[in-house]
């Protein structure tokens, strides 16, 4: 559930807001719906990873990979696919960390109440 929510909301939000909504959205959603830390991390990580991976692949194939090869060379990464994969991994990690933060904060707040 959390995973689906993050995936949908974060993906939509990214069309309008800066890149860091991939941290803000998982944080807010886990603050609301998060339960266990490791579950939340996983939900945040996979949701953002997929959100980035799929859109990257769409843009890559739609433009015949005209730019991904050049950027891979610039960043000294062997192939465009590796670049897209590594990029999505980075996005996923940021989402996952934010998700776990939200969950822990929620647990702390619940305890205090």
């Amino acid at each position: 559930m959390l995973f689906i929510l993050i995936l949908i909301i974060a993906t939509i939000a990214q069309f309008f807001l800066p890149w860091w909504v991939i941290m803000l959205v998982p944080f807010l959603l886990t603050l609301w719906k998060g339960e266990k830390g490791n579950h939340s991390f996983f939900a945040g990580f996979v949701a953002i990873f997929i959100s980035w991976l799929i859109y990257s692949l769409i843009l890559h194939f739609r433009t015949d990979g005209i730019l991904t090869g050049k950027i891979a060379e610039m960043m000294m990464i062997k192939s465009p696919m590796l670049l897209i994969f590594a990029g999505s991994l980075i996005g996923g990690l940021a989402g996952g960390i934010a998700a776990i933060t939200g969950t822990y904060l929620k647990q702390l707040l619940l305890e205090r109440i």
Binding site: P18, Y55, G87
Partner: peptide, 15 residues
Amino acid sequence: LGKFLSPYQGYLQNA
């Protein structure tokens, strides 16, 4: 890297 690799905001928007 966040800004730059994000397909919604980064380099892929220039392809």
